[in-house]
Design a protein around this nucleic acid. Structure first.
Lengths: 341, 341
DNA sequence: CTCCTCGATGAAAACCTTTGAGTCGCTAAG
DNA sequence: CTTAGCGACTCAAAGGTTTTCATCGAGGAG
């Protein structure tokens, strides 16, 4: 019997060493119940002795499963690395997928070229499923993914019909209500809102929370709300136009921490003290931002790690053909008090 | 002839439709020269007609190539999403690898658990090669990777012997010299340095540039340099101890933009005007930071996109068994003037 | 004692591609 | 006229795993 000592051991080698057939060894590896205790032990011993690792390609070939999932972002790239929120999502995805031993294939899909590539890739059967982060209205990525016979879980609500779509969303509206109620309970009378871009449903939901907490009509909204585009610079600008438009404003709910950081800068430049003159509440509770503004930012926490973990679990369920209790999950948001309100 | 109309077409189907054998079809796909123009055209037509996509698993099985590479970060996770630098690296990796049609498998490797997992994964032959971002001294990840028979390209110099290692580094020392010379040319007399953690060679190289530009001895270094740990908070603290220790300091070269942002805050709090009282130069030229400090930050640019692109190209060369001219590449750094110096 | 049942196992097919060896029809060289 | 060489193909093996189906032996029922 010749043993090539450098090549990676195969299932055949394991089986030989354990004195069983390849089939039995395979059953052990896949935790099949129909295998005797002795065989099980022998195979396991052989596996560790040889340092055996299943060949992913061979397995994929026969199971028609790749053991990989795609993680897709449609956001334009500059935004992806300016906003720590995305880094966090990516990190959470990497961790959660590693935990279940699935490869994560990260794709940033923005230009039409990217879209074509993504389509080819996903249609090519190179992954078993996908996690999609595509918040914008008429996002091409969503249309692409929707057509494919591929299990997909969305982060937040994609634009358009939600029928049959699997998603994990944060309770944006609830969080916004929380934030606004807090400002009301502090006795603030003129409360304004810096919203996200209104082609994202998360921004709309936050706006709606604000609106309902204050029982605002559309005219009120038009006067008290300004779009900050989910960027720091946008937050700055939105805040200064609100300052100009709403004299005597004494509180602001900002739909993201990044924008809130910008808003704080504007307020400071305008000579407003926070929270004495103007109370500020952000959204995201992104620690790297919220703890380093001056003053530290009171914010609505949405746990992105949790969200992504749920998305992964949900997708794994789909891949195992298990039934999912609810296709669309909503995660609670909570208020984190710091000094800005 | 029965055509199952829902399953993905195989090479067999393509060959049949083109009226050639599987082998020939395969050669067309792999751009083999030994195929007639007619056959080539027929096969290509069949491919597009059927929308054929090679089965990655089957291909991997026979070629012993996976078409995937690992991208490994050893940095602790909080740092990864606080510092936009990492987001940028990840983004650049995603793009560069997508361009050459290779899957990117992202792994964040920090805890011993992670390390064990990474070892198993890499040793398991699930990827063809790896890009490694592990700057710290005695980084466990480097020892793990080094032992494996796997093509690897490092970002920057890993600690320890560089013999035979493939890497793409930035000219940290040169950039530091540039920065320091600028401050000298502005007539500054008491120039100090906020360094990165000295268990990273990039930090050491930057320190060395500073040192040599000022012909400093070790005592001078001990007096004029403070470690800021590559974090914003660290930059803040380092700056304040330097202010206390070096009365009359009129310039500071800070080894990263993130730290420089912190240092600027400290300077402002101390009532120093920038650049009139103290000139400041950062490092990284991270736009999201450098353009938003007040005043905007003069900084040394290292092009991370470029670096990662070079790493990918280098790795692809290794995978194709091509000779590489130089195992260790160094990318130039340039100074970007803004208002802080 | 015979007939079944049942659990554990092994043999072999199937998954899809690449690739070395062999085929075939020619032309050019000996 | 034979033979070597050549270009374009085709054949078939190989690659490692899962899974179906058949087999085998033991034990229980009749």
């Amino acid at each position: 019997m010749l043993v090539s000592n450098h090549a990676r051991p195969t299932l055949e080698d394991v089986a030989a060493r354990a004195g069983v057939s390849r089939a039995t060894a395979s059953r052990v590896l896949n935790a099949s119940p129909r295998v005797s205790p002795e065989a099980l032990e022998a195979v396991n011993a052989a596996v560790t002795a040889l340092g055996y690792q299943p060949n992913r390609a061979a397995r994929a070939l026969v199971t028609r499963r790749t053991g990989a999932v795609a993680v897709l972002f449609s956001e334009p790239e500059p935004k992806i690395f300016d906003d720590p929120h995305f880094a966090r999502l990516i990190r959470a995805g990497a961790r959660a997928l590693a935990d279940v031993d699935v490869q994560m294939v990260l794709m940033l899909v923005h230009s039409p070229d990217d879209q074509a590539r993504a389509h080819r890739f996903l249609a090519g059967g190179h992954v078993d499923g996908a996690l999609v982060f595509a918040p914008h209205r008429n996002d091409e990525l969503v249309s692409i993914v929707k057509k494919l016979p591929l299990p997909v879980v969305y982060a937040g609500k994609p634009w358009g019909s939600l029928r049959g779509m699997h998603l994990v969303d944060n309770d944006n509206e609830g969080g916004a209500v929380l934030a606004t109620e807090l400002l009301k309970s502090l006795g603030r009378k003129k409360i304004v809102h810096v919203s996200g871009p209104l082609d994202e449903l998360s921004a709309i939901d936050r706006l709606n929370g604000f609106k309902s907490a204050l029982s605002l009509d559309d005219k009120g909204v038009a006067r008290l709300v300004e779009d900050g585009g989910f960027t720091r610079e946008g937050g700055r600008k939105a805040m200064s136009s609100l300052l100009a438009r709403v004299p005597g404003l004494d509180a602001v709910f900002v739909a993201s921490d990044l924008m809130a950081a910008g808003a704080l800068e504007t307020l400071q430049e305008a000579g407003k003290r926070v929270p004495q003159d103007v109370a500020v509440v952000g959204f995201d509770d992104h620690v790297a931002i919220a703890e380093h503004t001056s003053p530290p930012l009171t914010s609505v926490r949405q746990d992105s790690d949790e969200q992504v973990a749920h998305m992964v679990e949900h997708l794994m369920r789909l891949l195992r053909d298990e039934t999912v209790k609810r296709k669309q999950q909503m995660l609670p948001t909570v208020l984190v008090r710091r000094e800005s309100a």
